[in-house]
Design a protein around this nucleic acid. Structure first.
Length: 602
RNA sequence: GCCCGGGUGGCGCAACUGGCAGCGCAACCGAUUUGUAAUCGGUAGGUUAGGGGUUCGAGUCCCCUCUCGGGCUCCA
């Protein structure tokens, strides 16, 4: 039964989300109206609301240029000023097919609709095929701004034609729109690519190649601390760390299946002595070889094989982004060989608990768990083995519930060999990025004919769990840079303190203070440059060094240093012993200090 | 990979319609010896990402390549 076609909507009575969605969707109509004015031959795609506004996809006779956005925006404002009402009407499907015969994408949409009536919406003489959900007239669409032009495939598939997408930001009030723009600016300020350069954490060189990042000394220090920490945590929990080569023969990947399913994401093969070698795209096959090299008893299980393993993936050039999307990366990887599903549940539980502990230590809070399931309709990507998938998915769901974690489920997100739990973190730009996965795998043990001897003396096939905790070093450090805004907690800070002599005659004492701190393995520099104290403080502040230790005549006399905390003021002189003890305790407790989260400290 | 937009000393930027490549910071040298976010003066540094073309003349216009950014697709 069709909705009343011209009912007035009381916007104020709607929940804000609903109201915004209506405004944004209505604005997309106005954009399409403007576009038809600019290019009457434009073919219309779709124009939905999104989190921060709206977009509309078009196939156009020519490429849009930035000046077009300005023109379109002005044209939209005219329509807004006209306060044109939105009017819905219901027509039969055959009528619709006739009405939209010149709009191939609309016909494509119609072809998927059930028989019966469809609705369309008209304002200011512009009609769009539409399910509904508008404001009353164009005067009510709120504060908006066209933001960018992008390419987008029709219905999200690379196989379909690419359309031109125009994005707009839209909020209820100009103040909220300004707030959003301010937020974008804030995100740019936190961007790991910007801070990574300023703090000399990483770099890329054209001669080394895109996606091949170089960890500079500061970045290498952060990475070393993280690596040691996570390895220790894993060793405490019964993981055995190994080192395996980054190359494998084609044979290995033929067995694993990567040769057939994954080759376009691998670096091309290297040929020598009539053999094909590959840079490995993942570590699992190497770890499996270790397990397979001997006959194992059920008493040895679970066997947890771990490695900070280097992997190589030929990511599409357009996908590369700073440190967070690279071609060569180091994964905090482990493969746990389990006797049965019961053991898998226990192990996955242990993994989830370790994750919670690690993220708490790092101060990370903006993440969520996703149960990633297969898509029974995608026969190309997934083995057609419904019982295997269901078994794995049920198991992961049970563990998530038992550990008491919030999670959501997503179809078609599984790996080709098994379902997984993904942990998605929110980046500075507000996007969800999967950093970590836990996967249950019945497939590879089968491919490699893995077995162990059970309590009954018979041979059984183990089940594998693939898991990461802190993701790739690259992605985790990118995330931490953005989270902390470069203000690393003391234990991770590349330089933990800088000693600042007030005049040249204090340099000897400054070196003495530094030496005393270094005895405790603290990372300390002395700023002996011929600069004023103020300038040195400013530089240390900009380099986000946690502690500045100013030394002059008074301090040298008292065997002390005047302590200044990053982001804070002068805390007065303290004995060097006291300062050492403070820093050591802060470091060893991995305290989120000083001022790791600037916005959370007044 | 695809669509759009960029690439100018180490970094951030400037150079109107084609007409002498400039500024700030950093670096280096000198002076200064400083008490909690920038001391003063000087010097050096660029084949304007690379290649080709148009032109009397190209950072600027055209073509190709590389690379970066925003999207799409993909993904840790």
């Amino acid at each position: 039964m069709p909705e009343p076609m011209d009912s007035h909507v009381d916007l104020a009575s709607l929940p804000k989300d609903e109201r915004l969605a209506r405004m944004r969707h209505s604005a997309a109509h106005v954009l399409a109206e403007a576009m038809l004015d600019l290019m009457p031959d434009a073919e219309l795609g779709i124009g939905p609301p999104i989190d921060t506004g709206f977009y509309y996809d078009f196939r156009l006779p020519r490429s849009l240029v930035p000046e077009d956005l300005e023109w379109l925006e002005n044209r939209m404002r005219e329509s807004v000023a006209g306060k044109h009402p939105y009017q819905m009407e219901s027509i039969t499907k055959p009528e619709a097919v006739e009405r939209w015969k010149d709009q191939p994408f609309k016909l494509d949409l119609l072809s998927e609709l059930e028989e019966g009536n469809v609705t369309q919406c008209t304002h200011a003489g512009f009609t769009d095929l539409c399910r509904g959900g508008h404001v009353n007239n164009t005067g009510e669409i709120g504060a908006f701004k066209l933001t960018s032009i992008a390419g987008a495939y029709w219905r999200g598939s690379e196989k379909n034609p690419q359309l031109q997408r125009v994005y707009g930001a839209l909020f209820e009030t100009p103040e909220e729109l300004a707030g959003y723009e301010h937020q974008l600016e804030e995100a740019r300020r936190r961007d790991h690519r910007r801070i990574g350069r300023e703090l000399e954490i990483f770099d890329v060189y054209e001669e080394i190649g895109p996606g091949h990042i170089v960890w500079l000394p500061n970045g290498a220090t952060i990475r070393r601390e993280l690596s040691r920490w996570i390895e220790d945590l894993e060793i405490e929990r019964g993981y055995q760390h190994v080192h395996t080569p980054v190359v494998g023969k084609a044979e290995l990947y033929k067995i694993s299946g990567h040769y057939y399913h994954f080759q376009n994401e691998m670096y091309p093969p290297m040929e020598r002595d009539e053999e094909e070698y590959f840079l490995r795209p993942m570590n699992c096959p190497h770890h499996i070889m270790i397990f397979r090299s001997g006959l194992h008893s059920y008493r040895e299980l679970p066997m947890r094989i771990a490695e900070l393993g280097d992997m190589h993936r030929w990511e599409k050039s357009g996908a590369l982004t700073g440190m967070s999307r690279v071609r060569i990366m180091t994964l905090n990887d482990a493969h746990i060989f389990c006797a049965d599903t019961e053991m898998v549940e226990q192990e996955v539980e242990g993994v989830l608990r370790l994750m919670e502990e690690v993220y708490r230590s790092l101060g990370l809070t903006k993440y969520s768990y996703r149960l990633s399931k297969w898509d029974p309709d995608d026969k190309e990507k997934y083995a057609d083995n419904p019982p295997m998938w269901e078994k794995g998915e049920d198991l992961l769901r049970r563990v998530l519930q038992r550990v008491g974690l919030d999670f959501y489920e997503a179809v078609g997100e599984a790996a080709f060999y098994g379902p997984k739990i993904d942990v998605e973190f929110e980046t500075a730009a507000g996007k969800a990025e999967a950093l970590v996965t836990v996967q249950v795998d019945f497939h590879l043990p089968n491919q490699f004919d893995l077995e162990y001897v059970g309590e009954d003396g018979e041979r059984h096939q183990p089940i594998m769990v693939h898991r990461g905790i802190i993701s790739t070093m690259e992605r985790m450090v990118a995330l931490l840079i953005e989270e902390y805004e470069g203000n690393f907690p003391l234990w991770l800070a590349p330089v933990q303190a800088v000693v600042i002599p007030i005049a040249d005659r204090h340099i000897n004492y400054a070196n003495e203070v530094a030496a005393r701190l270094r005895k405790e393995k603290l990372r300390v520099n002395v700023d002996a440059r011929n600069e004023r104290m103020n300038g040195k403080i400013r530089d240390a502040q900009l380099k986000k060094v946690p502690y500045m230790l100013v030394v002059g005549d008074r301090e040298a006399e008292a065997q002390a240093a005047a302590v200044r905390v990053r982001g804070g003021g002068d805390m007065g002189a303290k004995p060097v012993e006291e300062i050492t003890a403070l820093l050591v305790s802060q470091r060893d407790s991995k305290a989120l200090e000083p001022h790791v989260f600037p916005e959370r400290s007044a």
